[in-house]
Design a protein around this nucleic acid. Structure first.
Length: 808
RNA sequence: GCGAGUGUGGCGAAAUUGGCAUACGCGUAAGACUUAGGAUCUUAUGUCCUCGACGUGCAGGUUCAAGUCCUGUCACUCGCACCA
């Protein structure tokens, strides 16, 4: 078959007949199948895109044939750093390179033969989209979910920009790998922490990979504990957060984070020099060092003492950088006997180590960090774990010195970027009125084209007079625009809401439409977004729901992460390693269907693996075989329709079993086994074809269903064969084949017979036999009798339809 | 360090509730057809071998029966990484 010709032919047909477009009259049977949209990079589409988009399309087409009105849109996450970096390097404007890249990618994407509904295409860098991204910001701002504050932020000295916590994971810049340093800037934040609890509890009901849910859970990091108030001798009070209130009698010092405001206030004059030096040194330390748990603990005594609320002991106060100012209260109590970090710290600075917890036997090596029984704890001695914690906190609570407290590790989402290529933050800073939201009717705040990209730590927009200067919407006086742009993750946090109403120019979407079309029924994309995009999108959905725009709680009901296709060398594909595999030469040589089929067959979808084209020919051969068989069978006259013996029954069994298996495999995205079953059906048809007398009516029926089963996987090929069968409408409008349970029932079953759990014989028995008869038949078998050698039978285990185990 | 996952032929990989390990394919070998074969078809193909034994990273355990369950251990991958 001329693959290229039929690709063109049917892609044109599908487009002209609007087969890829969602039928808006069928929202009651909607199936929203979405792949994570991609960034329009200068590099061409690689194998991973095909693996993601092409194979998700197989699922979408399968669902369509199962009777759903499938909506599968495609778009581009078009703002972002790479285009701007490229502009700095080459002088080519981000808008020009991005739009050009999009055009190239659109063309490449069409080669996949996916049923993308291009009428709903989104490009996040276009004003008709980012207008609504800005609108989203304003709604969150109104709700108090967007706020501005000065904060130490992750600063990448190489990219000259602020990074989100998630983009600075591990203390290095996600993009360039440079060590991240801290810098104080006034930044915009989204208050994602307001939803910490629901983001956590909502995970339970989601059909998502367990690993991803666990990652989000850990990222949110809920922990139950208590805040306990310590009083300094000066009278100043401060709280520490602890999950181990049961260890409070073992406190031998307390630590304040170096950034803690009380450090300066409480430091005694004789310690001032040392403390100041330490605090300054901490500020200079970059994240990579500060966050390393292997690092030696350091700290400095500030000269002041506090009083333990539990027993009134006087304990020294330290400042140490192993305590994070941004978590809990920024202060902890040091219990060296029962915390590894405190143990290391106390050992170094010669602080007392008092054991207050012990195990069942009364002996424990320090530091002992498990739950245990209290000792040296006055009235609480003998209590265990949770009971001890509750009793102690209750007692302190009565004295106003403690309270139960839940903490989350999740931080608010820093969304300001000192970059050009993003959606401008729609806020005006007025010398009289302060921060003023841009009125909705003035949206979008357009991104100017003529800017200076050269990075110098200032937003390119800040240097653009025409952009910056404006009138305050409130007082009409001279004012300045916010020079920053929004993190691109803001754009991608709501795009799935835009697709179903992509051309709405009155609102980001019509809630009536969106509430029918959402949530997304199947979301397919890489696992690397587990704690960023997927969390942010959930936050947006919940926030918009609470504002009354949406009536659902979660954006993505079911999520699948496709595996990663690695380079042939087993490494992640990258330009620098030179191991990027392009789909283009394979599409050129074998066609889109063969490549789709090979990607389905050669890998477990959720695992991926190193690229290797050894098997691609075999898949091409498989389609050739199907095609040859197809033409051979369709050319046969209808004969022997009434012939239905063992061979026909066997063929019918394989046919029905294939339908059952493939249906199930497609539904669970077990593509490799689905293709294996289709190969088996082909083999069975070939085998049957070699018989002298053939029921050609049965063969034709089998072939017809084969074409239907193959259609979601090899759409052009199958559409062609379908039309050759004389069908006037698309194969994707045909019903997915169903199987007949009766055809799956065999008259006879082969049993494996084991003697003392060892395989000794195989016997074929009628399906209708009772357990007793099966046992009798097995014991009467000549091979079995021989293998038993006259030994008495003690016990016989019969597993119906499978095996018989004789214990002798 | 903590958390999660993976480990099966020469290779990619299969294996409902524990029930014939290695489906499907690649590769390899032999044969058929052919002027020819890098096409097509057929057969064989876990290892060692004579019966038979041994085989799912390794060592144990539970069971009539373990790739699957339990304990320990090694290797690799991913995530988190001083969160008190």
């Amino acid at each position: 078959m001329d693959m290229h010709a039929i690709e063109k032919k049917w892609q044109k047909y599908w487009e002209e007949n609007k087969l890829n477009e969602f039928d808006k009259s069928k929202t009651d049977k909607k199936f929203y199948c979405l792949e994570m949209f991609s960034y329009p990079s200068g590099a061409k589409l690689h194998m991973g895109h095909w693996y993601n988009f092409g194979l998700a399309d197989c699922y979408a087409r399968y669902k369509k044939m199962k009777g759903y009105a499938v909506f599968q849109p495609m778009g581009f996450d078009a703002f972002g750093l790479p285009a701007e970096n490229y502009a700095i390097k080459t002088g080519i404007h981000p808008q020009d390179s991005t739009l050009k890249n999009i055009e190239t990618m659109e063309n490449q994407l069409r080669h996949i033969g996916a049923m993308f509904d291009w009428t709903a295409e989104i490009k996040t860098c276009m004003p008709d989209y980012y207008k609504w991204t800005q609108w989203m910001f304003l709604r969150l701002y109104e709700k108090g979910l967007a706020y501005r504050k000065e904060a130490p932020v992750n600063w990448c000295p190489s990219c000259n920009t602020v990074l989100a916590n998630e983009q600075a994971a591990g203390g290095v810049c996600e993009r360039c790998g440079s060590p991240v340093v801290k810098k104080n800037l006034t930044q915009w934040f989204f208050k994602i922490t307001a939803y910490a609890e629901e983001l956590l509890s909502g995970l339970d009901g989601l059909d998502w990979p367990e690993k991803t849910k666990l990652m989000q859970k850990n990222w949110i990091g809920k922990s139950y504990g208590a805040e306990i108030t310590f009083a300094a001798e000066s009278g100043d009070e401060f709280k520490v957060f602890t999950t181990r209130a049961d260890t409070i009698f073992g406190v031998s010092y307390v630590v304040l984070a170096p950034e803690h405001p009380l450090v300066a206030k409480l430091t005694t004059p004789d310690r001032e020099k040392d403390v100041k030096a330490y605090v300054e040194a901490t500020a200079k330390t970059n994240e990579i060092d500060r966050l390393s748990s292997d690092r030696e603990k350091t700290g400095v005594f500030i000269g002041a003492y506090a009083v333990s609320p539990a027993d009134g002991r006087k304990i020294p106060i330290y400042a140490a950088d192993y305590v994070l100012f941004s978590y809990g209260t920024g202060a902890v109590m040091g219990v060296p006997a029962h915390d590894e970090r405190d143990f290391a710290f106390a050992s170094k600075y010669g602080l007392p180590i008092t054991q207050v917890i012990t195990d069942k036997e009364g002996n424990a090596t320090l530091p002992f960090t498990d739950d245990g029984y209290l000792v040296n704890s006055g009235e609480f001695d003998g209590l265990f774990g949770d009971d001890a914690r509750k009793a102690i906190v209750k007692k302190l609570e009565d004295g106003g010195k403690a309270s139960f407290k839940v903490n989350y590790r999740l931080r608010d989402w820093l969304i300001s970027r000192q970059r050009y290529w993003g959606a401008p933050i729609p806020v005006i800073h007025c010398p009289h009125c302060g921060d003023v939201a841009v009125p909705d009717e003035d949206l979008p705040v357009l991104l100017p084209y003529d800017v200076e990209f050269k990075p110098d730590g200032k937003s390119p927009l800040a240097k653009h007079e025409g952009f910056m200067h404006c009138k305050c919407p409130k007082c009409g006086g001279d004012a300045q625009r916010d020079p920053d742009t929004l993190d691109t993750f803001v754009c991608s946090s709501w795009y799935y809401l835009r697709y179903p109403d992509a051309h709405n120019d009155k609102a980001p979407f019509d809630p009536e439409i969106i509430n029918k079309m959402l949530p997304v029924d199947k979301y397919v994309g890489g696992a690397e977004h587990a704690c960023m995009h997927l969390l942010y999108a959930r936050f947006f959905t919940k926030a918009l729901r609470d504002m009354g725009y949406l009536n659902f709680d979660e954006p993505f009901t079911s999520l699948t992460h496709q595996g990663v296709i690695l380079g042939p060398d087993g490494n992640k594909m990258s330009k620098s390693k030179g191991n990027v595999v392009s789909p283009d030469p394979y599409v050129e040589e074998y066609g889109a269907d063969v490549l789709r089929l090979y990607l389905m067959f050669g890998f477990n979808y959720v695992d991926g693996g190193p690229w290797n084209d050894d098997g691609i020919k075999s898949v091409a051969k498989f389609l050739d075989r199907v095609e040859r068989l197809f033409y051979k069978i369709t050319a046969m006259p209808d004969e022997n329709a009434d012939t239905y013996g063992a061979d026909e029954k066997e063929l019918d069994f394989v046919l029905n079993n294939t339908i059952k298996s493939v249906d199930n495999d497609m539904n669970t995205l077990s593509y490799n086994t689905a293709i294996a079953r289709l190969m088996e059906l082909t083999n069975a048809l070939n085998k049957y074809d070699n018989l002298p007398v053939k029921n050609t009516v049965l063969m034709k029926e089998a072939m017809k269903r084969m074409v239907l089963l193959l259609a979601p996987c090899a759409p052009h090929f199958s559409e062609e064969l379908w039309s050759q069968l004389g069908n006037k409408s698309s194969v994707f409008l045909a019903d997915y084949p169903t199987f007949d349970e009766k055809k799956l029932v065999k008259d006879e079953v082969e049993y494996a017979v084991q003697i003392n759990s060892r395989m000794k014989a195989k016997i074929v028995l009628s399906k209708s036999l009772s357990k007793e008869d099966i046992e009798k038949a097995a014991l009467a078998d000549a091979d079995v009798i021989a293998a038993l050698e006259g030994k008495p039978v003690k016990k016989v285990i019969v597993i119906v339809n499978r095996l018989i185990n004789i214990i002798a």
